[in-house]
Design a binder for these strands. Sequence first.
RNA 1: GGCGGGUUACCCAAGCGGCCAAAGGGAUCUGACUGUAAAUCAGCUGGCCUAGCCUUCGGGGGUUCGAAUCCCUCACCCGCCA
Length: 426
Amino acid sequence: MSVVSEHILDELSWRGLITQSTDRQALHADLASGPVTLYAGFDPTAESLHAGHLVQLLTLTRFQRAGHRPVLLAGGATGQIGDPREVGERSLVSADVVAERLASIGVQLEKLVTFDDSPTGAVLENNLNWFRDLGSLDFLRDVGKHFSMNVLLARDTVRRRLASDGMSYTEFSYLLLQSYDYLQLYRRYGTKLQVGGSDQWGNIVGGVEYVRKVDGAAVHGLTTPLVTDAEGQKLGKSTGGGNVWLDPELTSPYAWYQYFVNTPDSHVIDYLKMLTFLSREEISEYEQLTADKPQLRAAQRRLAEELTTLVHGAEQTRKVTAASNALFGKGDFAELDARTLDAVMAEVPTGEVRLAEEPSIVELLLAAGLVQSKGAARRTVADGGAYVNNVKVTDDTWQPGSTDALHGRWLVVRKGKRNLAGVQVR
RNA sequence: GGCGGGUUACCCAAGCGGCCAAAGGGAUCUGACUGUAAAUCAGCUGGCCUAGCCUUCGGGGGUUCGAAUCCCUCACCCGCCA
């Protein structure tokens, strides 16, 4: 921690968090001259935020800690329209569903950014507040008139979509809605900066120019990189394809922790910079450690701990690290005492079987939720990827006996190297 | 409104009356090597009571001994013309 606080843009820059910005010098000066109100938008595309949203949220917090005030804009209106994707028209979501999602996302947002009465306390807004009563004629006259078709049609996403599978007028209008958001936030809160992922650049610039045309104000835009994993997948897409959610009902804290512990060496330092508040010094220590002793996975562990604590709290982090250490340590599961084993099993996915029904390894894998069909279970056994209590099972007719259950209760079933689950024996 | 093209498994994409549970590629999954890493190589990938049976090629209906393949119809998408 340095005594003289670093300029927020310089900090963001070394953390690799700036992809593009509008007039950088003017923005730098504005941020240096006093508290700035800034915003980022969150469309309710699902009932929970996912790991990919963290970059934005943490960026807002960084600004907040630097003395600025964040506005979190929930897309109650824009979420009903849908930001055009690279390919494929989105299906519309009903207003009710959007409202429901917004409620649960709002709770998550409030946990991740500080909301209080201080000058830097965050504000949660909803763009439905100004779109609800905006008539289509007013919209076309006051907003649409300021946007040139030539410019709109030149946008990458629009061009690609028109060249491939087409695009509805509804999605085409999305940029105008987001631009109007900026104007409203400028007028209501004096918001002078919008941050977003780099895929939002076009939308952000649209807003910046709109505010300038209408109110003659010089407001700014800043984009962060789209964080991707080694495969180029967006951060938060698990290898299985699904999202890694903040909601513990959708992604357990254990699974969340494991997702980050498995971060490849090539990305872990970048993630520490972008997704944690560790200092430069600490991060460079981890960089050294990863280079010298990668097998310790020290950086991965720290990353996973930081993010689990951020989202699920310190107590939960303690539990999942304990469970992970027990399961991935070199120790024999049979040596775990009953209490420890129960605690571990409380964190991982579990299922149950009745010994009286003479379940085979196939049923165990299925009960554990590690496979989705008996065929897949047999394949796993044939591939040599099935284990019970860390012992490989190669015969798909193998059945556990009562002596196999640890403490008379648990079978630890594993598929492959790192997919573990507990099966309770009845 | 007219004409033409299209809709195949997680994604892309071949197939155009039987040899099709459906080529090929990507992705996932598993194995080897490792460090719960990457890269590489190999195997697997609809379901089940697995010498067999069931469901699947946009929806529905039909022709045929037999259809992803032919016909009708509906829906949606793309293009050209108006």
